[in-house]
């Protein structure tokens, strides 16, 4: 059975159909690529999956459970974590604090236990601290821990956002253009990093990316969106040779 099942999902914005009757299923452990020209509806599909946008029609199942109408925080708690195309870190807070915050669902200290510093709360705090530092280290940002997120370089912000998502200990990690704005050396590093964290954290990854070599080299399967519709789905080779995809990307009339 597939881990995540998108069935006939659509989302309209006024007259525009940003996502048009898309169905796909993501298998456990795979790196699933989502590509398509600008405005094709990729980010909107991510927003539908993570509950930030409600669908006009269609259904979403995760591990067999219907999550179509769940609010974002519940979907996150079920194990789907994401990054944003236009990075949404907590900019005024330190890198470390950004990661501490993302431990929310795995901790349970209430108002009074936290304020009074009861033993259970303190123990939890120690655990969060250890894990937060480990994650910062994993993405190579331990030296920038106390820097405000908004003062980090663009590449560091992208890495911090991935670390923040990993703090949720997700099953599915959704990355919205994680390589945007990186040079080719950084892209290669990122590609290796994504492959590694999949193994380390036992993740299923859904990835939106424009950079074709990166997607082709990294993904097990790729879906292509164009004007909200899925026009191709399959292995990188199959998709790359699909006439509809070539047309969508090159704008050739057939």
């Amino acid at each position: 059975m597939s881990l995540l099942e998108v069935s006939h999902m659509s989302r309209r914005f006024g007259g525009l159909v940003a996502v048009n009757d898309v169905s796909l299923s993501v298998q456990e452990g795979e790196i699933f690529g989502l590509i398509g020209p600008n405005g094709a509806g990729k980010t909107t599909l991510f927003n539908l999956i993570t509950g930030l946008t409600s669908p006009s029609s269609g259904n979403l199942h995760y591990q067999g459970q219907d999550i179509t109408r769940l609010p974002p925080f519940r979907i996150a708690a079920l194990g789907l974590a994401r990054t944003f195309q236009n990075i949404r870190l907590f900019g005024n807070l330190s890198a470390l604090e950004n990661i501490r915050i993302a431990h929310h669902i795995h901790t349970k200290t209430g108002v009074w236990a936290g304020v009074l510093g009861l033993p259970a709360a303190r123990a939890e705090q120690v655990g969060v601290e250890r894990q937060a530092w480990a994650l910062l280290e994993r993405v190579g940002l331990q030296g920038r821990a106390f820097e405000r997120a908004k003062n980090l370089s663009y590449g560091d912000q992208r890495r911090l956002e991935i670390a923040r998502a990993l703090a949720l200990r997700p099953k599915v990690l959704l990355l919205d253009e994680p390589a945007a704005g990186m040079n080719s050396a950084e892209k290669a590093t990122l590609s290796g990093f994504i492959r590694q964290v999949r193994g380390e954290f036992g993740l299923t990854i859904i990835l939106i990316e424009h950079h074709v070599p990166l997607v082709m080299g990294l993904c097990d399967r790729i879906a292509v969106l164009n004007f909200g519709q899925m026009i191709a789905l399959g292995s990188p080779q199959k998709v790359a040779n699909d006439p509809a995809v070539i047309e969508a990307y090159l704008g050739v009339e057939t």
Binding site: A81, L89, T109
Partner: peptide, 22 residues
Amino acid sequence: SRIGRAFIALREDELAADAMGI
């Protein structure tokens, strides 16, 4: 504390906080 952090996360970016399980 944990709850205070959740408050501050909401102040900083409600949508991102929501997506982080708050």
